[in-house]
Design a protein around this nucleic acid. Structure first.
Lengths: 211, 211
DNA sequence: GTCTATACCCAGATAGAC
DNA sequence: GTCTATCTGGGTATAGAC
């Protein structure tokens, strides 16, 4: 079921009650953040709701209760990741100005900085790998195209620029998924490849692979 | 256990017997090809040995029997995919000559043509997504780096050329995994994005998403 | 709102016949 | 070499107490 609509639920009820309502909203975000990390690391099928629960510090049935099903939870994670990505891109576009020569570099830096939110880009990538799934396929295709459109229409990228940017992004995602940073210090080629891909923030991949 | 060594097994025994030995070698290749397709579509965890068996037209226990475990089967698929990829790249390098100006374009075409072997590039990509796994992680990192080295050392690519080439490859893999070709005819942006990424063989992605 | 206990199903692997 | 039958573990989801 479309988990997007679930965002509407859980709004503060009761006007005067002293009980700290909205509590479940915080839990929800807590679980989503934890789930993002686990899904990103192990993929959709490889993730157990129990692993998510443990990462969030709650019980497994509670995770299911709150999101209905595992797949609804995953879709909520995807929406959250995509939402953050688009928001950050738009913030950068607003700051640098549409179609300025600095914009591509700035958005690229912006993208790499998203790596610090462990799981955000990886959970998206895991979603992309599910394109053949009848339920998530349409969602991830639409999401990917929306990123393309934001770059082109709002950022003023040419179609080629946008495609190149996305290609670089997919390369970064792949290096992260591969944990290529694990070989950063021991393999000259790994280091060269990483530095060739992310000249500025190469060491970030190394640190990311350690944890 | 390392499934690579299994290649040595199953060699023709008995000198004079009229029985058509080597039968199991054919079965092995049949199952590997089928498994490549299923793993590529559903990922490692999402693939059941039963689905592989059905795709190959044999029984589920037989698949397990022949490869020992599901993970050994997956590793065999990875080795097969990587082996084919490297062989084709080297063939192209030998044909065009090291560091010729035409080589990058030729290898790019070569890469896209590998898409016709349904599952080859996707099963590799699914392997990349398992980089955090202690068993397959080292294997896929080594494989990825080997491709990089072949491009650079045997093909004469500069580090930047090689990294750019791989980025384009990851983008293509992602578009295939996304089944972006499904929107080729109905979504202008999907078409533009695909054509921007694979100018020559754009329609291939469309056909690939149909099946 | 959150837990414990549990039902139920599915998938990998084994045993053993042919 | 290949099958049928089956054991077993683990994961999602539900029931129901607190």
């Amino acid at each position: 079921m479309s988990s997007v609509t679930a965002i509407k639920e859980g709004m503060p009820r009761q006007k005067g009650s002293g009980a700290p309502r909205m509590k479940s909203e915080e839990r929800r975000e807590l679980i989503l953040a934890a789930a993002s990390g686990v899904f990103g690391e192990r993929g959709y099928v490889g993730t157990t709701t129990d692993a998510v629960a443990k990462a969030a510090g709650v019980s497994q049935p509670y995770v299911v209760r709150m999101f209905g099903t595992k797949s609804a939870l995953f879709e909520a994670v995807l929406q959250r990741s995509l939402g953050t990505l688009l928001r950050e891109f738009r913030r950068e576009i607003a700051a640098q100005g549409r179609a300025t020569p600095e914009l591509p570099g700035c958005i690229g830096r912006c993208y790499v900085e998203l790596l610090s939110d462990r799981g955000l880009l990886l959970s998206l990538m895991q979603g992309f790998m599910l394109g053949a799934d009848p339920e998530v396929g349409p969602i991830v295709r639409a999401g990917f195209l929306e990123v393309y459109r934001v770059l082109r229409d709002e950022g003023g990228f040419s179609p080629e620029q946008a495609a190149d940017f996305l290609a670089e992004g997919m390369m970064i995602n792949t290096l992260v998924a591969l944990r290529m940073g694990a070989d950063f210090d021991t393999d000259r080629d790994a280091r060269e490849l990483i530095e060739g891909t992310m000249p500025a923030k190469a060491s970030m991949l190394r640190d990311l692979a350690r944890t």
